[in-house]
Design a protein around this nucleic acid. Sequence first.
RNA 1: GCCACUUUAGCUCAGUUGGUAGAGCAGCUCAUUCGUAAUGAGCAGGUCGCGGGUUCGAGUCCCGCAAUUGGCUCCA
Length: 643
Amino acid sequence: MIQITLPDNSVREYEGPVNGYEITKSLSNSLAKEVLSVSVNGEVWDLMRPINANSTVKLNTWESSEGKETFWHSSAHLMAEAIEFYYPGTKFGIGPTVDTGFYLPEGNVLTDKDLQKIEQKMLELARQKNAIVRSEISKAEALKMFAEKNDQLKLELISELEDGTISIYNQGNFTDLCRGPHLPNTEYIKAIKLTSLAGAYWRGNEKNKMLTRVYGVTFPKQKMLEEYLIMLEEAKKRDHRKIGKEMDLFAFSESVGQGLPLWLPKGTQLRLQLQDFLQKVQKKYGYEQVMTPHIGDVKLYKTSGHYEKYGKDSFQPISTPVEGESYLLKPMNCPHHCEIYKIRPKSYKDLPVRMAEFGTVYRYEMSGELHGLTRVRSFTQDDAHIFCRPDQLKDEFKKVIDIVFIIFKALSFDNWTAQISLRDPNKPDKYIGTLENWEKAEQAIIEACEEKGLETVTELGEAAFYGPKLDFMIKDALGRSWQLGTIQVDYNLPERFQLEYVGSDDQRHRPVMIHRAPFGSMERFVAVLIEHTAGKFPLWLTPEQAVVLPISEKYNDYAKKVSDFLNNSDIRTVVDERNEKIGRKIRDNELKRTPYLLIVGENEAENDTISVRRQGEGDKGAMKTSEFADFILKEVREQLSGL
RNA sequence: GCCACUUUAGCUCAGUUGGUAGAGCAGCUCAUUCGUAAUGAGCAGGUCGCGGGUUCGAGUCCCGCAAUUGGCUCCA
């Protein structure tokens, strides 16, 4: 007996052996069109593959990740077939899913114009309804087959496989090595959009040759493609680079340099507001603010170990008129903070010391890596270092997690994920510090997260070179994940800087250090905030909270009076003094995303009132200026209440 | 850094097979002084990313460089 779980989670039984296609066909014709593959005892199989009795079977449709993967995998083969039609002899790498992707070898470089051509060919091939047929051959046969094609990429893959049978798939004139699973035939693929071309290192290794990768998406229905394209358009509208330009928040200048952001007045206002907010939270949690220079003696970074990583092949050290003297633009704030710690001897009663700084750091990122505000060469970390006794570590770590959540709550970030990044045990030379300390640090993070009930994923090999960390990620408008907040445990720097405190036993002990930046960096945080809110920031953050719109120039004086009053009440207000009709002023200021539009004319000037309009919501009626001020201050207070 | 695309007025973009540049918006001036999403008219604005080359002639073709964008690798 075969037990079958339908897409709606109902369960049926079926006599075997039989294949997935026959099962769905017998259930209903409409279902037969929707099921793309089957999961047999947890393994995804082709529909046509015979299933033995005593199996549990799940039917995979487009709605399931297994079904989608099958669909896109076959799409990748279809694309390969189309590419081979135009470029015979093309060697294909692997076609990972998520979106469909393919590699081409060097020398066979495609251009955007090819994409349309290939897309058309794919549709044509799909309509031929070619069956996608699995067959199994021995490893020796497979090696022979791809040696004949002189396909080094595939030979490399095959030689790494275990002996035994190897599956290959054929559709139309195209045959390729593949584990599967695949759709029964190409007809399922109804809508195709090849989106972009990119270079990609073979097997993701920089040392290997660069192949061409084609990105695209396919769908079982034309309408789904249309919806997808609309979604992409919408996402583009939220892009922080576009909104940053529109709202005059930040800019770049070729003359200043790549990856060096210029914060415009409104962007600066926004950033200062965020900094002020975090400072207040940190004060409550016992942090003290410090300030340190943007450069430091190279020796400092040799002590810390940062010179090896950041000094040598990034921004070159700055030389001075004095022979042998050189300074480094600081890539991190920690060494400076360690030196502050050392200024005066510490007692166990002094700990924890929590030292915070909005510290601007410089890192020479590779040019191709730069991206808007999310990846730049000069950025300001909302940095702090906590120096504590080992027995305080876990507690301090948990308090930092609390701060991260205060921030996420204040900005209603609810789509975060948390990742514990540990060292890669197989690459000990990538990290500095003793194994014992690494283990202690990793344990502290894991336990703190457990005790906080935090849902996390754990990644090996993602740790910083000096210690393990807990990272918080947020997705941007286009679904790309960015790392924001980070909390790192470090036994290593205290060792290198020989940090000490005197314990109650009158002995010298080594403190533990926590590096933490809940925003990550001001640049990246603002970028993600822009995409998260589409530029409609919470009122407390908005650079211009209200704009006064005089009906005509006759009321500019009164408008000024209103704006002065509001500014004196700590409400950031400007006046739109242009000689334009009121409809025009409303439109322009709505588009600028100003939260409150205050219209003043004859009525308002006489009664000392303003006519209030909330962005996106329309007319809210008239009120006294002082009433409005109270109303706004209350709204801001509420947004920040409980924080 | 590597692969591919792109780069024309402050912004968004046109510019045919090579014959020395256009629009809308923004800006400025004038008129208008207006009641809840675009008042009208006029003016000005460009080393066509930068540097070479081919040509009688290059925004357009070729080469180099730079920056942007999408990826790879790397990372806050």
